[in-house]
Each structure stands twice: as structure tokens, then as C-alpha cells.
Design a protein around this nucleic acid. Structure first.
Lengths: 205, 205
DNA sequence: GTCTATAACGCGATAGAC
DNA sequence: GTCTATCGCGTTATAGAC
């Protein structure tokens, strides 16, 4: 039930999408912190101050991308494969999806999880979205372990946080060492099955 | 046997140390990418262009800190405790030292392992230092496993890289969630013993 | 009202003349 | 070491066009 838009409003929405799209391209190419309003404006055939009709500040552009990043991340997690499979399949799927999201959205990933922009602080609304998505991911993981009736020899929360740390660490190192290789290849990108193995070994012993 | 310095050279060296010291303070306080030459100059009672007497560019300041960061990191690793202890003690010591280095040198750590500065590319010399230190750390780890006569059920390199990923992931998450808590406390900062445990479980099964 | 432009401010890194 | 100057940045004020 999207609101009906006038011609003007529609053009405006398209321009906003173009701004965000160009911003993402520049962040991918030059790094998140290297984004400049001058570049966006020039590529749109505008002057820099005209951008302020669409966004109140550069931080607001970052903020919208930050927010959308977490929405997108939630969709990836909701739609990840092997959700009806074994625990092993599910854990591999979680870690692979996390790494692939980072790989294919390096700009958003940096913005969301690395905070490389000095002045940027997410708005309250965006922070709420981000915390909501992370909670949803946590809940998904809890259900998974409950369904399998796992008995861990460490508290559940600690096991979950080790999975997060391993996924995050492998992802960071994959992006640092082989940013162009797909998940599954490269020194760290190929280690997900082994990572899952050691987690399962530890839990099921 | 440091070269003998004239009075002038000595004063100059002291000024260079002051510049780097102030730079680190500002990076700690405001973020690595927020460092500004104007702030350094003002705190030294100088004008900004005068800094160019000591460093050819802002990047050269980053580069020197990057280089020193890896030298310092190597010293921490060389002097870490429990080097004559058990495998478990050694692994905990490696991960704890890595995390403590990051915690107590967050400015250098960001510069070394996160690259948050758009234009900054380490010089060849600094890159050589950094690669040398990382090789030394790897070699230390190899010797450790050889000494214990471990038989891993995965290739040695993969086991080593899982340790790196786990240490790096826990460190990143500790700094993101509880940057002010010491290593050993906080959601991720307290998980090193458990991380070592699952690695040992997997290897010795 | 909505979009665009120009002008200007303050700050950043940096180059050159003294 | 300084001062001066250039260039690019994000941002604001303001005025004109649709």
C-alpha cells in the first residue's frame, strides 16, 4: 500500500534513489570515508548545494544507507538456504550468508560494522532498525539450537557469540586478503566448513 | 649505537616525537581518520605549514605510526607470558596479547588492521616491516605446534588461520561492544578461554 | 511550494617564497 | 620556522525559475 505519488514526488523519489546509488558506487570504488558530495552532484549534473534539497547533510546520506543496509541484511538472513536442513547445514548457511553479504555489499558492510567515518553517528531510528535486525538474527539462532535439542558444555550465549566472532573474523580477513575472490575461495574464504566443524566438535563431545 | 646527534638534531628529534605523540592522542580521542594537522600544530604552538619541516605530508605521519605499530606489536608478541607453558597456556597468551595490544593501542590497531583512512597507503618500507612481523608471529606459532607434536585433523595452515580469525573476530567485537573494559571482561573479551577450548577439542579428538 | 543556481564562510592539506 | 595562496571539502544564505 505505497502512497500514491504525484508526478513531482515520483521524480523526487527517483532522484533520491540516484543519489544513494551513486553514493554506493563511489564508496565501493574509493572507500566509505572518501565519499564526497561534489562527486555525487557532478555525476548528477548538479551543483553541490542542490543536493541539500534531498538530504539535510552528508551524514543523512550515510544514515539512510546504514538503515537500508540492516534491512537488506535481515532479508538475506531470512532468505538464506538450508533453513530446514541439519544443524551443520544451517551453521554453514549462516556463516556463508554473512560473508557473502559483506563481500557483495562491502560499502554497506563497512558502514554498518566498521564505522570508518569519523563524524558519523547513526540516527536513533536507524539504530533501532539495526538492533532489531541483530536481535532477529540472534533469535533465529536460538530457535535453531533448541530445535536440535543441543546440549552445549558452555552457556548458550557464549556458544552463539563464538559463532559470531568466527564468522566476523573470517569475513574481515577474507575481505582484507582476497576481497575479489568469492566466498568459498581464498585463504580465509574457504574455511567456513572447518570453522563449523570445530564448533560442532566442541559442542557434541 | 645510535648516531651521535648535534644539539639541533636532538631538538628536531624531540619535536618529531612530540608530533607523533600528539597525533596518537588525537587519534585515540577523535578517531584515526579525524586527525588534523591544524590540531597538532596548535597544540605545539606552531602554524600548520611548519609541520612540513618534520614530515612531508600527513600520510607520512600515518606511515611512521603504522611502521612503529608493527614494531611494537612484534615486541608484545616476543615478550608475551607463558612461552614455556602448555599449548593451552600459549594459545591463551597469544590471543590475550593480541587483544590487549588492540585494546591499549586502539589508534595503532585501527591504522594497522582496519585501514580507516581513505588516501593512506603504507610505504614499501613500512609494508616490509609489517609483513616481517606477521611472518615472525606465524613462525612462532608453527614452532609451538611442532614442539607439542600435535596431530591436527585439518592442515596446519588452516588450523593456524582459524586461530587468527577467532582472535581477530573476538578483538573486533570486544572493541566495538566494550572498548573500555579490560581484556577478560565483557561479552566478547571474556571468551578467550572458551575459544581456546574449542580449538583444542577439535584438534585433540 | 519545489528545485536550482551563485556566493560566501570556515576548515582541511599542501606548495612556494621569505 | 613564518606568511601567503591554492584548492577542495561540507554547509548556509539567498535569490531566481518552474
Amino acid at each position: 500500500m505505497t502512497k500514491r505519488l504525484t508526478r513531482r514526488e515520483q521524480v523526487r523519489e527517483e532522484t533520491i534513489e540516484q543519489i544513494l546509488s551513486i553514493a554506493r558506487e563511489e564508496m565501493q570504488a574509493e572507500g566509505v570515508a572518501a565519499l564526497s558530495l561534489g562527486t555525487i552532484a557532478r555525476r548528477l549534473g548538479m551543483r553541490t548545494p542542490s543536493l541539500y534539497t534531498y538530504f539535510d547533510s552528508k551524514n543523512d546520506i550515510y544514515d539512510e544507507l546504514f538503515r537500508r543496509g540492516f534491512v537488506e541484511f535481515g532479508q538475506w538472513m531470512d532468505e538464506r538456504p538450508y533453513q530446514d536442513g541439519t544443524l551443520r547445514e544451517n551453521m554453514e548457511s549462516v556463516m556463508t550468508t554473512y560473508m557473502r553479504f559483506a563481500q557483495e555489499n562491502q560499502d554497506l558492510y563497512q558502514l554498518m560494522f566498521q564505522r570508518p567515518v569519523p563524524g558519523f553517528v547513526p540516527s536513533e531510528e536507524s539504530m533501532a532498525v539495526s538492533l532489531g535486525q541483530l536481535d532477529a538474527a540472534k533469535a533465529q539462532f536460538s530457535q535453531l539450537l533448541e530445535r536440535e535439542d543441543m546440549t552445549l558444555n558452555i552457556p548458550f550465549e557464549e556458544g552463539r557469540d563464538l559463532v559470531i566472532a568466527l564468522a566476523h573474523g573470517l569475513t574481515e580477513l577474507h575481505l582484507a586478503n582476497n576481497p575479489d575472490l568469492p566466498v568459498g575461495q581464498g585463504r580465509f574464504g574457504q574455511l567456513i566448513p572447518q570453522a563449523v566443524q570445530i564448533l560442532l566438535d566442541a559442542w557434541q563431545k
